[in-house]
């Protein structure tokens, strides 16, 4: 019996040593190979929509940017908003398609990061509040005592701004609904949950809603929009502060120009973003978002 065990122990030991050894070898060879030009330019996007659609559209963006800038661009999918912000903070994501709130969070963590490009509609973005068609809900105040779902807790158009406008209308989302509000995680899930009847009402991104209606993903006989919020700044491409250092000076401008040159001809991109052009933006545009987030104690 003891022989049996010592054999087991020995092989385990040898194996674990071998495992450690091979790790080191591989790493050193890898380290030597790496040069600055070989670095992959990684882009990310907040997972606020159907994962398959996002993957398709963002891969198209990566391909387009590769062609235009000569960099090796890759899309890195992410399961939650906070994970993407953390990746950005760590400098692993070089550019990301953030919502207003996540871009403010990201710029708080990486002070020299810059919001560079957005869609024309992002300058005056709206959230829509939806409910079941037969429900007698016609204004925000009617939501009192009804079950309600936000999108992701980190979403601007699915949580932050709807919460802000609800509070303005005198509704405390933590107390006044039927039970606590739900966080569905994504805009697509929000309308599906309202359509399936799981929740009486919800709030989501106007662009995602319009796309869903256009593509017949949502049954408008069952779900209706009863309130559209005033305009605010939302989504944007935010570029990391380490880009010039890693990929050489001028990269920021190169990437920005490439993004601005996107037109409706890039069909997969146009489909995902619901736009046929991009325009410039800057950090100052998101001051209101930051103020609201601080008021609601989402940013401390």
């Amino acid at each position: 019996m003891k022989k049996w065990f010592s054999v087991l122990l020995l092989t385990m030991l040898v194996f674990s040593l071998a495992a450690c050894g091979s790790q080191k070898d591989e790493k050193t060879s890898e380290g030597n190979k790496e040069t600055k030009t070989n670095e992959v330019f990684k882009i990310g996007a907040i997972p606020d929509q159907n994962a398959a659609d996002l993957d398709k559209g963002m891969t198209a963006v990566a391909k387009y940017l590769s062609e235009k800038t000569g960099l090796k661009v890759e899309f890195v999918p992410s399961v939650d908003y906070a994970a993407l912000v953390t990746g950005f903070q760590r400098g692993e994501i070089h550019m990301a398609w953030f919502g207003g709130l996540t871009s403010v969070q990201a710029r708080n963590l990486v002070p020299d990061a810059e919001s560079i490009v957005q869609r024309p509609r992002d300058a005056e973005f709206h959230s829509v509040f939806i409910t079941q068609a037969q429900e007698n809900i016609n204004k925000l105040e009617d939501l009192k005592g009804k079950s309600f779902t936000f999108g992701s807790e980190s979403s601007t158009s699915g949580h932050l701004m709807p919460r802000y406008f609800l509070t303005e209308a005198g509704i405390d989302p933590n107390k006044d609904f039927d039970g606590k509000p739900n966080f569905s995680g994504s805009h697509d899930t929000t309308y599906k949950l309202v359509e399936s009847g799981a929740f009486k009402a919800g709030a989501l991104n106007e662009a995602v809603w319009e796309a869903a209606v256009k593509e017949g993903k949502v049954d408008t006989n069952k779900v209706k929009v009863f309130y559209t919020t005033p305009a605010y700044f939302d989504y944007n491409w935010t570029i990391n502060s380490n880009v010039e250092k890693v990929f050489g000076t001028g990269t920021k401008k190169k990437v920005k120009d490439a993004l601005l040159s996107i037109t409706g001809d890039q069909k997969e991109i146009a489909d995902l973003f619901q736009t046929d052009s991009f325009v410039e933006t800057n950090n100052d545009n998101y001051q209101k978002i930051e103020k609201v987030a601080k008021e609601l104690e989402i940013i401390k």
Partner: peptide, 20 residues
């Protein structure tokens, strides 16, 4: 483990649930 973004069965379950 996939709920924090590491692949595997949980990740697939989560994605499918998001799409209902």
């Amino acid at each position: 483990m996939s709920f924090i973004g590491l692949g595997g069965l949980g990740y697939q379950i989560q994605l499918s649930l998001q799409d209902l």
